[in-house]
């Protein structure tokens, strides 16, 4: 598959600081624009880190509700708004696993994902491939998984990921390399997808 020329969908909102300022002042229309702009990215970020689509939907909802509730604490000019949303999403995923005491062991991952049929209809011609990747991602460390999702699915640069995770670029490259090698190995083992 040739992905050259893929349009970058992650351009920051040109008027983001203005929208955030307005939203912090209580303007729900501005918050709605931020929500529209970032829903897909937050959903994908969560989707590849939890076991099923329903959980991804619920956590994505929580992220935006928490963002609205805590908007007063967000500092304009500090962390970018999207990075702040990612932090909320990251914490929500951790809370989810802590609450449910879900282990990340591959043997415990069950992909009861009714959304896959829908996903196929929506254009992905290999739900099996995506399901395998999702399961294999669960076998990586949290840092490795986060780096791979941010880099290859969310199209962040190593520099952006380093800033977001508070690590050095060299550490991000190492995590990326180890994660990719581990993922390739797991995929080569042809992990069966539980239906």
């Amino acid at each position: 598959m040739d992905l050259r020329g893929v349009k970058k969908s992650r351009m920051p909102l040109a008027d983001e600081p203005h929208l955030v300022r307005q939203a912090k002042a209580g303007n729900s229309e501005s918050f709605g624009q931020l929500y529209d702009a970032y829903l897909e990215r937050i959903y994908r970020f969560v989707y590849f880190r939890v076991e099923d689509q329903q959980t991804a939907e619920d956590i994505t909802s929580q992220v935006f509700l928490k963002a609205w509730e805590n908007l007063g604490r967000f500092q304009i000019g500090g962390t970018p708004f999207l990075a702040w949303l990612y932090t909320i999403a990251h914490n929500a995923v951790i809370d989810h696993y802590r609450t449910r005491k879900v282990t990340a062991a591959l043997e415990d991952v069950r992909l009861s994902d009714p959304g896959h049929a829908e996903t196929v209809e929506n254009g992905i011609d290999s739900a099996v491939e995506m399901g395998s990747i999702k399961i294999a991602l669960q076998t990586l460390t949290d840092d490795q998984r986060q780096v791979l999702v941010l880099k290859f699915i969310d199209e962040m640069s190593n520099e952006e990921i380093a800033r977001h995770l508070g690590k050095r670029e060299g550490a991000i490259r190492a995590l990326q390399m180890r994660g990719l090698k581990a993922l390739a190995k797991r995929l080569a083992e042809k992990i069966p997808i539980p239906i």
Partner: peptide, 17 residues
């Protein structure tokens, strides 16, 4: 594996969400 991961960009939230 890289190109497979990139296909994750096609994942969209369901319309009702």
């Amino acid at each position: 594996t890289v190109t497979s991961l990139q296909r994750g960009r096609e994942i969209q939230p369901p319309p009702f969400l």
